[in-house]
């Protein structure tokens, strides 16, 4: 059971959260102007990184807020939690 730190409520068990996939994928401004390939890229393509990964979570059983997490997909180590709209914090060694 992962321990995830909601930026508001603090550390809670993972079962209180829902996963939202890769972070920082912005909905295109004018979808109508995109080619099928560009739209498919927005819609379907995610990095599926092995290692540190920026991803979205929502505190579904808590404050219902969305936020971003940097989690190592191999070790589950969470090295950053930051609010929607914020840039990922600089990595420290």
């Amino acid at each position: 059971m992962l321990l995830i730190k909601c930026p508001w409520c603090g550390e809670r068990d993972a079962h209180e959260f829902s996963y939202g996939g890769e972070a920082h994928i912005t909905r295109p401004e004018n979808p109508d102007k995109l080619s099928d390939e560009q739209w498919a890229d927005y819609l379907f393509m995610q990095k599926n990184a092995m290692g540190p990964f920026l991803e979205r979570w929502v505190h579904a059983h808590g404050c219902r807020r969305w936020f971003n997490v940097r989690r190592d997909t191999v070790t589950h180590e969470i090295t950053a939690v930051y609010k929607m709209g914020d840039r990922p914090p600089e990595r420290t060694a």
Partner: peptide
């Protein structure tokens, strides 16, 4: 206060 789960409900 805390919003969380008790048994199988919010």
């Amino acid at each position: 206060c805390a919003q969380t789960a008790l048994a199988r409900c919010h």
